[in-house]
Amino acid sequence: MKIAILGMGCATCNKLEDTVRLAVKETGVDAQIDHVKDIKQIMAYGVMTTPALVIDGKVVAAGKLPSLADIKKMIGG
């Protein structure tokens, strides 16, 4: 599974990355985590609010910080 966090280094964006890493660790899902900080790449997903969470190329959350439980559900753990 490929997980991407879209964010330009804001505090919430970094928090999202931490939460995702924790979710992956706790569920034991096999995933590759990427933190995309380049605005051109971020815009390629078409989101207008950061942080955004992308799982296998699909935007699943934008402009908010989903809870640990929600992220676990999204990654199917």
Partner: peptide
Amino acid sequence: TPFCTCSAIPLFIGFVE
């Protein structure tokens, strides 16, 4: 609209686009 200054760039580009 819920908006945070930190999202100003993607929002601006999204609008212009």
